[in-house]
Every structure is written in structure tokens, then in C-alpha cells.
Amino acid sequence: MGAGVVHSVLYISCGEVWKVGFRCGNNGNRWRVRMIQLPPQIREIYPFQSHWIEVKGYGMHYVDEGAEGAKATVVLLHGNPTWSFIYREIIPRISHACRTVAPDYLGFGLSDKPSDEGWYTLENHIRAMTEFINGLGSRRVILVVQDWGGPIGLSYALQNPNNVSGMLIMNTWAWPEPSQFHASVMPWRMLHAPFVGAHVFLRRNVLVERGLYLSTVRSRQLFRQGPVLDAYRLPFSSPLSRVGMLAFPRNIPLRPGDLNWDRMKGIKDGLRTLPFPCRILWGEKDIVFPPSNAHLFHKLIPRCSTPCMIPDGGHFIQEDAPGEIAREVLMLLEMI
């Protein structure tokens, strides 16, 4: 295993080449040729055209659907260990009403994956997403956020309040104090402890293989086997391609002085200043972020609707309640 970047290099399934991407450099003049051909069983449920943009020197993949000239742009931000695929059931439900953009963070999905764990800081993700959103050429976007999409999207919103017209906040957090799940040795802190994390995240990909199953309710059966699970496995085909997945939990602050404590405190302090309408949708069965998080958001954000709770929804609420999420986005569109 060498240093560098894990590009979208050669994905082989059953002897057939499904996906090829490569990059060539010559005296600083970089050019890129990409071809994407996802396995048909995945393409069938993720039938969107792929787009790339260069961000921080890496190729960032995104989906960009919807009618040209739409009055609003909705940006859908995923969490760990997912990618734009998690919004596949939501995009077709809203793209008639808005431009719908779903990026894959660097290190996730079909985007390039730096292999140096040190690259994957919350700050770098925020900078990359800021560059991405500002490069869309859309003014006043609506952000839809879940899991790490919360700190990333809220940071963008606080730094660019005039470029955001609304937010849908789902199963996430925005303060330095860790959830009980994040603070406990068993299981979370053990999972990403030194060497344990390298084994279970990098070598054996358990966050995809088991974590998705454990963190969903309605859709749980999709994560036993089949094309949905295969689609989540697809971007993470080697240990070095999973470094970003391991780095995210290591970015969660637990006490003052930890990496990102001050950043998260800044986000919390900024919630009361958000000038645009926010809606909240929450999977009540989330073992990571309990319903009390939804009520805290409601308390801290001035223009915030009463949380819409999904009693049989889990952490990956996009899988459990895509119809409800689409409805909330359409309601936000009517509000702006």
C-alpha cells in the first residue's frame, strides 16, 4: 500500500470491468479522463448522470438533476459511510421542483480518496464543500443534511448565510458535547481505537457490512444482501479507499482541547443566528443521535419548525423515510 490518492481506479466484478477512472499529470498540467459504468443492478437504482469538479486538487463526484432555470437549488449532504447513493429515492421525488445536487465528499462515493488520514479533517471537508457549493453557480441554496452533513453544512451556512435560504436537518449534531454513543468505549470508541479501527474499518469494512444494518429500521432488510448493500460496498473496495471512513469518527471531539471542539462550539453558538427557515426530520430509533438532539435544534434555531419524528426511522433516515424527506424538502421550497 503506497501513499497518494485512491482514484476511482478499476472496479472489477465477475471478470468484467465496471468502472474505470484515471488521472494523468504532466508538468503540472493535469487532465483527467473518467468513464463510469456502474454494475447494471446498481445503475438501475441509481440512474443519474455522473459529474465531476476539481476541488482542493481532487476530483469530486456529484449528481446534478432537475430542470434548468429552477428557482432553487437543493444540495443533499450525506454522512459516514454513505455517498450520494443514499439520496437515490429522494432525488426523483424533488427534482421536478428544483435543481437537485448530491455530492460525494472526498474520500467517499465516486470521488477521489486521499490515502493520508491526516487529510481528513472536518476543516478540510468544510473547505472542500464550500468550494464545491460556491462553484455551483447557484445563489441561495437549500441544504439537506444528515450525520456529518450537519457540521459540514451548518459550517457552510454560518460562513455564507446570504447564500442559504433554508435547511432540512436530520439525525445529526452541532455542538461539542458528544452523544452518549460517541462518548462510550463500547462500542463506538472501541471501533475506531488505534489498530482496532485499522482492522475493523480499513481491513474489514464493518461500518458498511454491519453498521448500515444496525442503524436502519424500516429498510434494514436491504442491508443483509443485494444491490443496495453492494452499492455501499462499491466505493470502498480496498483498505486505503476506506481511510476517510475511519477518519470521521476520529474527528469527533470528546472534551475541551480535542480537535474540533472549538469548531463545534462555534457551530452551536451560531445556530441562534441562522436567518433562514429550518425544518427538522428525525428517525426516533437512531442509536447515535437520540430524539433529544432534534428538540435541542428546535430550541436553538430561531426559525425552526416543530420536529417531524419518524417513529420507525433509524440513523440513516434517508433509507428509512425517503418519502417523508421529499415532502419536507418540498415544503421548504414553498416557504422560500
Partner: peptide, 19 residues
């Protein structure tokens, strides 16, 4: 043949100190 690499043994200082 490399079978595991831990890039951040100091993620928890007590692990780094021991190793």
C-alpha cells in the same frame, strides 16, 4: 506482506505510549 497499517497510533495517547 503488509496486512494492517495504523496511521494514527496517537489517536488515543495511551495506545501510542504502550505501543
Amino acid at each position: 506482506a503488509q496486512v494492517l497499517i495504523e496511521q494514527s497510533p496517537d489517536h488515543y495517547p495511551e495506545f501510542n505510549a504502550f505501543v
